[in-house]
Each structure stands twice: as C-alpha cells, then as structure tokens.
Write a protein that binds this DNA or RNA. Structure first.
Lengths: 268, 268
DNA sequence: CGCGTAATTGACAGGACTCAAATGGGGTGG
DNA sequence: CCACCCCATTTGAGTCCTGTCAATTACGCG
C-alpha cells in the first residue's frame, strides 16, 4: 500500500544507499555514495505494540521511520507510561555510541523501518569526520524539535492542542508526499491513549474534540485511526497558531521519492 | 558572593582549561589538558534581560552557565514569548557549526558565563575526533533533557508542576554545591512570568501555589526571586513524582569545585 | 456467539483561566 | 528626602474548561 503512493522519478534523483531526511543526512548520502563505508540499510517491518528498544538497553541498530508512528515513552515509578515524543516517517531513530537509552521506543502503529546495524554505523562514523559532522547536525535538529514540541503545551486549551497536532501531521504528510497543504488528505494517527498522553490530556477529552471537529466539518473520521482533513486552513485557524509557528515541525523532513529493491529513498 | 560557596580542594581535582558538566565534557577537559587545541575560556557577566543570542542569529560563542538562569524563548507570530527551556549553572549553551539559532537565548536573571569563541571551539572540534565524539555525547544528553522536560507536563495539576520544578531546582543546586538534598537551602528563580510560561500556566496560578506552599510551611518566600526549601521531602511528596523520576534532571550535572584566576571549575 | 479492549457519551464537580483591583517595591526626578 | 510612577506581584470573584467517574457502544478476535 505504501508503495502505491510513492512518486516515480528518474533514478538520478535518489540514493540507493541511504535514506536522507534532511540536508545533514544528505551529507551521509553523498558520502555513502562516493566512498565505501559499508552503509547497508535493510527494511524491517514491525507490528503495533512491538518494543523496538527497551528502557536502559543499549541500541544495536539505527533506523529511519518509513511508515507508521514510533512512540518514545518514559515509564514512571508509579507504573504509568508517558509519551514524551513521537517519531514519524522520515525521522531518525536510535542513539549512537551504544549509550543506554533513557527511554523505551515502541511501535505505536504498524511501522516500517529502514535499519542499519549500530556497529556498522558507528564504524563508518569513526572512519569519516564528514559523517560525524553530519551526525552532529542531525542531533542538533533533534534538540530543536524536542524544544519546539514544547510549544504544543503553550496552548492551554486542549482543543487547540488537538488542532495543532492534526495540522502538524497534515503538513508533514503533505511535505513527505510532495503535495500541497491546501489539499484534503487522510492522515493516520495512533490510538487515543497515545494521543492523550502526548497531548497532556485524557482520552475522553481527545475523543470529544475530534468529534467536535468532525461535526463542524473540519475533519472526517474515517475510522478509529484515520482522519481526513477536509479544511486545513480552518483547522490551522482553530489551532490558534500561524503556519510560521509550526514550520519547524515539518521543515527539514524528507520527501519520499521512490522505492526500489526494497530500499526507500528520501531526499531533501 | 558566588565565590564564597565554592569549596576549596587540591588543585589536582580540577581543570583550569575547561568547565566540564559531565563525563562527556570531561573528555573535552582531558583533551584540552593533554594537547594544545587552544581552548581558552573567559568569564562573562551579563545583566538580567540581556539577549545573549537573538533568533536566527549565528552564534559566535559557546559557553557554560556559571550562575543565574538563561531562558530559551520562541517568539510566536502573535507576539507572545514562550519559554521552551531553561539553562542552569553547569549547562552548556550555544549551537555549534554556526547554524542559525531556532530560538532566542536571554538572561532570565543576572548570569555569569564561561565563554569561548565559537570559531576556536569549532576549530578544536575539527582537529580532534575525540572532542567531536564528546560533543555528540553532550548533545545526546541535551535531547534526553528536552524530552524529560516534557514530563513536567505529565502532571495535570499545576500545583504538582510547581512542586516538581522547585524540587528539581533544589536537587540541582544540592548536586552543584556538593550538599545533601535533605538539607534546607535557598534557591533563586526568575520572574513569575518566565515561571508561568515555562510551567504552562499563568502568573496568578503560580503566585497562588507558591503562597500556598509557603503557608503550609514547605517553603519560605525570602523575596520575589528567592525561596528557601524548608521541607524537601514533603515538597517531593506534593509533586507526586519519585526521586527516580526526576533523576535525569540533575544527574550528569557538574559539581562546582573551585574558582581560580577567574576560571571556575566544574567536575563530574 | 461471547469476550475483552478501545472508544464514545453523559453527568458532575473542581481546578484553573480570565478579568479586575489592590498592594508592594524599585527607580527617577523634583 | 520625598513624591511619584511604573512594573511585578498579590488577591479576589466568577465562569468555563476539563478531569473524573460511570455507563454504553463499537470493534476485533478466538
């Protein structure tokens, strides 16, 4: 199904060796192309609920998300799981340097990953300073994103948070698929529990707001997980933020170009 | 005043060349010591309200916070300033690689910085792969912290958020000063506006909660900016989180050791 | 068909935001 | 030195939002 929506372009436009989500990874792409660092990606499918990396474990792989949503959770001492961040198609996953992870990474939906052995990646990083610089830039963007994410909470109204989130997902999807943000489109989210935890509210409130948006004709509820954005502009207006304010969330995300030999291509 | 609370130790315990906030920077420290990379730090004083780095500007320095609080703000299109993060003594400041900053960095209180020219730092980084790896590790911790920060909002009760924040500041101060967390101590915060923005609430609510905590004898309001933590354990209990849950916030923060020749020393 | 989970819907109470006014402190100028 | 202003903070009253609890519905699966 995912393959269907990929746009076919000339082979020169994309790289078979890597998946670049932004210009910094493009550096990795070019480097992988022009030298032989042994950057071999492989495609992985993981079902919803799968634990990709447990808390405290040393990661043995790095990966890009191709489809689906990965949730980053922190388990509190009282047993509750809090979603601290989410990774979408085009995002990078995995701590380098074999540092034990502070969080658990789980598949919030069925996910497709483009993965690579952490040892290989590290070896390549150690060999190439250029690659190391690119990696720092990648991390730099992650710090920015984690901070931007906090802006979601700047909106005290939970309806605004839901609207902001839907808008961001819509913008990201549009960019990934090389489509216009003005067009209506279907985005698929994770379950209400993850949504609520991520937005700092409850499943009941999320449910109410989604149905409210549905009643006033801004979105259409396809099924429990999928929503069609009917009126992107009004959704953005309800969210109370401008397009500029959420630019950081989708800017720098990769664009899907083609898939061939089981390797998807993302380019800046 | 700051000098008074520094503990004097033998000269071998600290490094004149750098200020290390955690083990990763210790690598920078050792490296600076054993080679001649030209890592020269200088002390800087900045008054409250000073803009250290404007939005979109390319940073020309990197620095460690020695005292005071630096706020990282995002200016929304409607003109409102949202505090997305705060830097405390021992934290690292400044994007590398001369990337334009996504945020503005401002002095939330009077601050002391230990600064270095970004060019020098970058040159040293380029020369040493070891330094580069150390820097990646530093950034890694920053991503973790930015995500941990989101846990503040997991508490829907604003009183809990205020209590969590006070607890975290108290734990950080205790660690920095090599004191026990059980002891009462005075912490100095920024203005109510920054507090409210950071905690995702309003200045009125923050004011009410602080006075509530004062009335029940958990804290003592010294003046508008300073608060004495009278009962750290009860404060933690009110916050609703365990010490484990907030460990990430203060673990890995440096310890103040000594100041000499205008250079403060922080060690793991 | 029956079960368990996820999601919806309703009723209700309490917390937090909003608006508004009073208080306090620091700095400036007369 | 004092009066004055400006700003930050405090305090109060009222309303709405949203969390909580509870019951119902929908859905997937064996």
């Amino acid at each position: 199904m995912l393959e269907k929506i990929y746009k076919a372009t000339s082979p020169d436009n994309w790289c078979h060796l890597c998946a670049s989500t932004d210009w910094s990874v493009c550096t990795i792409a070019r480097f992988a192309k022009h030298t032989d660092l042994g950057l071999h990606w492989r495609k992985r499918q993981e079902p919803e609920g799968e634990i990709l990396l447990a808390y405290g474990d040393k990661p043995d792989f790095v990966a890009y998300v191709l489809s689906g949503v990965v949730r980053i959770v922190k388990i509190l001492s009282n047993g509750r799981e809090e979603v601290v961040d989410l990774l979408y198609p085009g995002d990078f996953l995995g701590a380098p340097l074999h540092l034990p992870s502070d969080f658990a990474f789980e598949a919030a939906t069925d996910v497709e990953l483009l993965a690579m052995d952490a040892g290989d990646f590290e070896a390549a990083t150690a060999k190439s300073r250029e690659l190391q610089t690119a990696f720092i830039r990648l991390r730099e963007r992650e710090v920015s994103l984690a901070r931007q994410r906090i802006l979601l909470f700047a909106a005290q109204r939970t309806l605004e948070r839901v609207a902001i989130y839907l808008s961001i997902r819509h913008h990201r999807r549009a960019r990934l698929m090389n489509q216009r943000v003005q067009d209506r489109a279907i985005i698929s989210l994770m379950g209400r529990k993850d949504l609520a935890s991520y937005l700092g509210t409850t499943i009941e409130t999320v449910s109410r707001h989604l149905h409210h948006l549905s009643r006033i004709g801004v979105i259409r509820i396809v099924d429990n997980r999928r929503f069609e954005i009917l009126d992107p502009d009004r959704l953005l207006h309800i969210s109370g933020v401008s397009r500029d304010d959420i630019r950081m969330f989708w800017q720098g995300c990769g664009r899907l170009v083609e898939i061939r030999n089981g390797v998807a291509a993302l380019r800046q």
